[in-house]
Structure formats: structure tokens, C-alpha cells
């Protein structure tokens, strides 16, 4: 918790299908941002009554000031892990916001400007365990988000996951981080961090 960036309602949506581990991903991110980095963070969720399949999403609002409304209004970052989620939520992205997709599952993006990594095939081919897909995504996110440090995420992982699956997940985390760094070396400098939430919703 040394010097930290001032954030005014940075809004993230993690979306995909049930069973991909989206809620776990949101929980770990929130925990790192709130407890290790000292931000105010709210994580809300939306999922269907089904155990697997169906739409699933986790929303995060991160801010340096206390958060009143816990849900996002206009997104700074949309992570879409299914084509359906990408189509559905792209319109909620603010003009200066970014889209991150799983290129294995999202074949048609609504815009040419996006970040893409093949999370699902990385999990299958490089790690050998499809369930680690969400942690690979988490590794990539710790590169894309300049206010979320990779080392803190790695540390937090040990507190959240059971010991027997920790090693493989740490490997997945590192893979995601290095892949993102290789493909998009300057991604974390592209943020504008303007959050005209007040003016936008008031129109």
C-alpha cells in the first residue's frame, strides 16, 4: 500500500458462461484491490439459476473514495469470455474503455480495437487443465491493469486456493501475465482514467 493511483469509479465487468470460474475471478480481483492495494471495491454478481451454462457475470467497481452505487454504470473494462457476453455488454463500454476477449471463444468482435488472448486454448494446451482458464485471464489482467500488481495477485492466490491446486494455478497465472506482456507490451499505458460518470448518467 505505498503510493497508489487515484481512481474515480473504475468499472470492470467479467462476463461469460456459468462454470468458467468468473465469480472466483471477480472475488480474487476484488480481494487484491481492496485488501492489498487499499482501494474501495465492490463486487456484485449476476447469474442464472443453472449450475453450469447460462450467462454469468461479475462486476467490480474500484475507487479511491467510498462507493455508493455498487453496480457499474459505464464500463472501463469489459472482459468477455463468450461470444454472447461480448455481444450483450459491448454497448455498456464507455468510449475510452477497453475490451478484452478470449479469442478461442469470441470469434467476432464488435470493434477492431480490442485485446485478445486465447485463454481457453492456453489452458488446455499449455497447462493441460481447462479449469485454469480464469486464472490465466487473471494473470493477463494483472498486466493490463496498472493499479493491480502481479506480485500481490500471486500472493493472494495462495490465500484463496486450496494447497493442492495452488502450484498449477500459479503456473497458469504466470503464463497469462507473460503472454499478455509479450502481445501487448504497452497496454497498461493506454488508459485515460477519466471517469465522467456523473455527467454521463445525468444526461
Amino acid at each position: 500500500m505505498s503510493k497508489q493511483r487515484e481512481l474515480n469509479r473504475f468499472e470492470i465487468r467479467l462476463s461469460g458462461t456459468g462454470g468458467q470460474g468468473i465469480l472466483t475471478l471477480g472475488k480474487i480481483m476484488g480481494q487484491v484491490l481492496a485488501l492489498d492495494h487499499g482501494f474501495y471495491a465492490t463486487q456484485t454478481q449476476s447469474y442464472g439459476p443453472e449450475a453450469r451454462g447460462g450467462a454469468s457475470r461479475a462486476d467490480l467497481v474500484v475507487s479511491s473514495a467510498p462507493i455508493s452505487y455498487p453496480k457499474p454504470v459505464s464500463l472501463d473494462l469489459l472482459v468477455a469470455l463468450s461470444q454472447e457476453a461480448c455481444n450483450l455488454y459491448f454497448c455498456n463500454l464507455k468510449p475510452s474503455g477497453f475490451l478484452l476477449v478470449d479469442t478461442t471463444l469470441v470469434t467476432q468482435t464488435p470493434s477492431n480495437i480490442f485485446w485478445g488472448l486465447p485463454f481457453t486454448s492456453l489452458a488446455k494446451d499449455k497447462i493441460g487443465l481447462p479449469q485454469t482458464m480464469n486464472i490465466i485471464c487473471l494473470g493477463a489482467l494483472s498486466h493490463f491493469l496498472p493499479f493491480m500488481q502481479f506480485t500481490s495477485v500471486k500472493k493472494a492466490l495462495a490465500g484463496v486456493l486450496p494447497a493442492k491446486i495452488l502450484a498449477i494455478n500459479t503456473k497458469a497465472l504466470t503464463l497469462g501475465y507473460s503472454q499478455a506482456k509479450k502481445l501487448y507490451p504497452d497496454a497498461s499505458e493506454k488508459w485515460t482514467f477519466s471517469s465522467p460518470m456523473m455527467t454521463e448518467s445525468a444526461q
Binding site: 471477480g26 472475488k27 476484488g30 481492496a34 485488501l35 474501495y40 471495491a41 465492490t42 463486487q43 456484485t44 454478481q45 462507493i67 455498487p70 453496480k71
Partner: peptide, 9 residues
Amino acid sequence: EITAHTREK
């Protein structure tokens, strides 16, 4: 549901 399923510090 929202209050119960929101995570916060």
C-alpha cells in the same frame, strides 16, 4: 439479493 451477494471490504 444485491446486498447479500455484494462483496466489499
